[in-house]
């Protein structure tokens, strides 16, 4: 029988209680947030499921121009949040809005989407681009930068009893611009590729930039060499072309049954270039691409 060893489901009401249950080696417990990834690949040996649904982690808070988002917040709540829509040129909202379908977004949570890197885990790309911080609570609490968090698969470094509890999005200064694009076959499809770019501008000069490509590999990638080309330069079409070319060459691409590696590089070039033209060169895009 499937999940033959499953004995009970607990519903802790505090993070401390959840951590305590999850830390107990003997209980063989697994945490469930939205539960979607568990249904897809259940750990058959699990003895106890720890539903995080009653933890006080379902919130979106504005703080000093940034955002703090609780880990069990459903993606759907990001989509209906004015704070999210107004933050970071709307790229967090745009990302959330394009994760799966409305039905999926009601189940998938922010924490789950980051911790379980599935093909639909779109949040990681913007979380990395927006330089968010990830709060992990366990016996000891620790805060990781997105950069640190996405160096490995979360399940490789999250210790027993550790929970991602909050994502902290830093203030998004006035001179910053950001854009996100997800490329799919149908509107509710998994991404073939997604790109998020955040940059700091003064006039036409690109002060700083982060370019993140998701969907080429299971974890999001920063394309440092492309960033380097742009950093502290005056934006121009030649520069943008060069940066997108380098990004396309540079990214690692895992095998995907849906298209060739070359096509993913083509997409990377097109998406990076399109975004930079928009937010660095202020070029117009077709109306339907705006949200």
């Amino acid at each position: 029988m499937r999940l033959a060893k499953l004995q009970r489901v607990s519903y802790p009401e505090t993070v401390a209680e959840a951590i305590q249950i999850l830390s107990d080696k003997k209980r063989g417990a697994v945490a469930l947030s939205g539960g979607v990834s568990f249904v897809f690949s259940p750990l058959q040996s699990v003895e106890e499921l720890v539903s995080l649904s009653r933890l006080p982690l379902n919130y979106i808070k504005r703080k000093n121009g940034g955002l703090r988002i609780g880990a069990t917040t459903p993606i759907a709540d990001l989509v209906t949040s004015r704070a999210v829509k107004n933050y970071g040129d709307g790229i967090l909202w745009e990302t959330a809005h394009r994760i799966g379908s409305t039905l999926n977004r009601n189940l998938i949570t922010v924490g789950g989407n980051l911790v379980q890197p599935f093909i639909w885990s779109d949040l990681s790309t913007v979380v990395l681009a927006l330089r968010a911080g990830i709060k992990i609570q366990g016996k000891k609490s620790r805060d990781l930068s997105a950069e640190e968090f996405f160096t490995r698969l979360p399940r490789q470094f999250l210790k027993r009893g550790e929970l991602v509890t909050e994502i902290v999005f830093p203030p998004f200064p006035k001179n910053y611009r950001a854009a996100y694009e997800k490329f799919t076959l149908t509107e509710n499809d998994f991404a073939l590729l997604k790109v998020a770019v955040v940059l700091a501008r003064s006039g036409r000069v690109c002060r700083d930039v982060i370019i993140v490509v998701g969907g080429a590999t299971i974890l999001p990638q920063r394309v440092l060499s492309a960033e380097e080309i742009l950093r502290k330069k005056i934006g121009s079409q030649i520069l943008v072309n060069e940066a997108s070319e380098v990004a396309a060459e540079e990214i690692k691409v895992s095998r995907d049954i849906r298209c060739s590696e070359e096509y993913k590089r083509d997409l990377c070039r097109a998406l990076v270039r399109g975004i930079l033209e928009r937010i660095l060169l202020d070029q117009k895009v077709p109306e339907w691409k705006l949200f």
Binding site: G35, V39, L49, L103, N106, L107
Partner: peptide, 16 residues
């Protein structure tokens, strides 16, 4: 209050 895919939810987790 939310529309969801009931096939993605384990019955044991819907207590209450």
């Amino acid at each position: 209050g939310r529309p969801v895919n009931s096939c993605l939810i384990l019955a044991v987790t819907v207590d209450g």
